[in-house]
Design a protein around this nucleic acid. Structure first.
Lengths: 235, 235
DNA sequence: CAATCTATTATTAGTTA
DNA sequence: ATAACTAATAATAGATT
């Protein structure tokens, strides 16, 4: 956006492309922070370079996972909708697979979270917690777990919506299967907590360095490292 | 970025916040497109408003899933690395949980993919494939599966990497725990069937309109008609 | 509320150190 | 290659329609 009028094509030169990448990545991350604060929403970005399997994520790794959790719920929802509309076209085995998938995913998520908690708690050296960049992520996990426990204790008769699972309804009883339900208090609580926490943090950080372009310590994805799976990139 | 010097705080007014949100979202999406083209990388963004469970994603839903796939692999890798470094600090139960997690996640991914394939193939009405926005995404899945199948056929002695599980090696023996392990025959079967059909479709579609970046009829995430799911945003 | 239209700030390509 | 600088383009807040 300077000097020349920017031709929007792939930059052939390695060094130039790399420089542009870093500059623009910074700009992008800043923009994401800005839209989050200004509009009170959660946003994340993931950039994957061909030089490394590991994409660069923003905000923290866990911040992305938090947004991703919602994304995965969206996938579920759209799958359900589609599934419902096309019921006639789908074989029984697909329906079964879907239920299984949902069940597994649910278990998965729980296991991931408790594992992550374990890892964080069991690491003596703070530098091992490179991904724990944001304490809010941690509190989010804790909150979520607490809410789940609460929910579990107070909910005796979850109302049923949607289709009836064929595996005896086990998946339905935990309340995760009900996709079209209004925001349950569980999720609502999480969101509210996050918003408050994020705004606080934002405030704190803004006052720390004038609201500028602050960068967390992050690995550099430049030319120097990576090259794992796509070594023909540009060579 | 105009008139006033931009105070980076939450915009209280509903209408102003909404306007800002849309403008900046457009800017963000443009930036993401630009960095992708200029630097030859894949990038995605997810924005989730508190008003709806469903976040807004960019580029297509599946484009995000593709980037996410790498992200999930990153999680695997970092967890493994961390686990290895901290072995002394970790209890046996955590190690077991990790293995279980990996197993479930692996199954999960396979099921998700074949389910997605099924859904795509079984929908008669193209408008039901709202998420199939980009055929490139589709072919990516196909490529990925093909590679896995090839790998499975040529690899007879998968080398073992990482640590040895402590639960008697059961998880390792079924091949689920080894990230590089071949797919099991069950899933292979499903996938192979789907692949054939998909390749046919791919071919047909490519010949239909020049093999370029062809778009299926799709929901537009842009300003003019998007917002399908969050029309009550800010109201 | 949605589009247009500026004036102004923000971003950044190219350059230099 | 990393950082700072700067001129030039790009994004956009606020106003208008």
């Amino acid at each position: 956006m300077a000097r020349k009028k920017l031709d929007l094509t792939y930059i052939a030169s390695d060094s130039k492309r790399n420089a542009t990448y870093k500059k623009r990545r910074n700009g992008l991350m800043k923009k994401i922070n800005e839209i989050s604060t200004l509009c009170g929403i959660e946003a994340c970005a993931i950039i994957s370079t061909p030089y490394d399997l590991q994409p660069e994520v923003w905000p923290s790794h866990l911040g992305v996972q938090r947004v991703l959790y919602k994304f995965s719920r969206m996938s579920e929802m759209e799958k359900s909708k589609k599934m419902f509309n096309q019921e006639n076209f789908l074989s029984q085995s697909i329906i079964k697979a879907r239920e299984q998938l949902r069940k597994l995913r649910n278990e998965n998520r729980k296991k991931e979270m408790s594992l992550l908690m374990f890892q964080c708690l069991s690491s003596e050296n703070p530098s091992n917690n490179v991904n724990m960049t944001n304490l809010n992520d941690f509190s989010w996990m804790v909150d979520l777990t607490l809410k789940e426990i609460e929910q579990n204790m107070t909910k005796n008769q979850p109302k049923e919506e949607g289709f009836v699972p064929t595996n005896g309804g086990e998946a339905m009883n935990n309340g995760e299967n009900n996709i079209n339900a209004p925001l349950d208090s569980h999720v609502q609580g999480i969101m509210q907590i996050n918003m408050d926490a994020m705004q606080k943090q934002d405030l704190a950080m803004n006052s720390m360095n004038g609201g500028g372009n602050l960068m967390l310590p992050t690995r550099d994805f430049g030319l120097s490292n990576g090259m794992v799976w796509n070594e023909h990139y540009l060579h």
